[in-house]
C-alpha cells in the first residue's frame, strides 16, 4: 500500500498525533495523543508477513511517513526486537505484530510508520 499523506492530514495537529496510535490487529495502544511528532523520510521497512524461505533476505517496502518519538518511555505499550545492524524493530506489545517501525540505536530515536498502525 503506497503512502498517501493527504489521508493523514487530519491525524496531525501542530506536528503531533491527534489521536491514539494503535495496533491494526489487536487495538493495543502504542502512543497516546500528542506524544509523537510527525516526520517524513524514505525508509525500507521489512514487511510484517514474510514467507519462511526469505529469512535471510526479508522483503521490504518503502515507507515515508512516521511518528517520531525521542524518549522510548513515551510509548504506552511497545516491543523492541533484538538489534539488527544499527536498529531495533518496533512491535505491538500485545500481539507482537511488526515491524511497525524501528528504533535507531545511534540517535535513540524511534519511528512508527503511519501505514502500519491505526489512529483512533
Amino acid at each position: 500500500m503506497p503512502d498517501c499523506s493527504e489521508n493523514y492530514e487530519k491525524e496531525i495537529s501542530e506536528g503531533k498525533n491527534v489521536r491514539n496510535v494503535m495496533c491494526k490487529y489487536c487495538n493495543s495502544v502504542i502512543l497516546t495523543p500528542s506524544s509523537a511528532s510527525f516526520t517524513s523520510f524514505e525508509y525500507e521497512l521489512p514487511l510484517i508477513r514474510q514467507s519462511k524461505t526469505n529469512d535471510q533476505n526479508p522483503k521490504t517496502e518503502n515507507v515515508s511517513l512516521f511518528w517520531a518519538v525521542n524518549d522510548m518511555f513515551t510509548f504506552q505499550n511497545v516491543g523492541f526486537s533484538n538489534t539488527v545492524g544499527n536498529n531495533k524493530y518496533l512491535t505491538c506489545a500485545d500481539c507482537e505484530a511488526g515491524p511497525i517501525g524501528y528504533h535507531d540505536m545511534s540517535n535513540k530515536m524511534s519511528y512508527v510508520a503511519l501505514t502500519r498502525v491505526i489512529h483512533n
Binding site: I48, F73, S81, T91, C95, E96
Partner: peptide, 20 residues
C-alpha cells in the same frame, strides 16, 4: 503458538517490552 509466528519479528526475537 500465535498468528504472527512465522514472521520477520519472531525470527529476530524480542529484546524487551515497555508496558504502562
Amino acid at each position: 503458538e500465535d498468528a504472527f509466528n512465522t514472521t520477520f519479528i519472531s525470527t529476530i526475537g524480542i529484546d524487551f517490552k515497555i508496558r504502562t
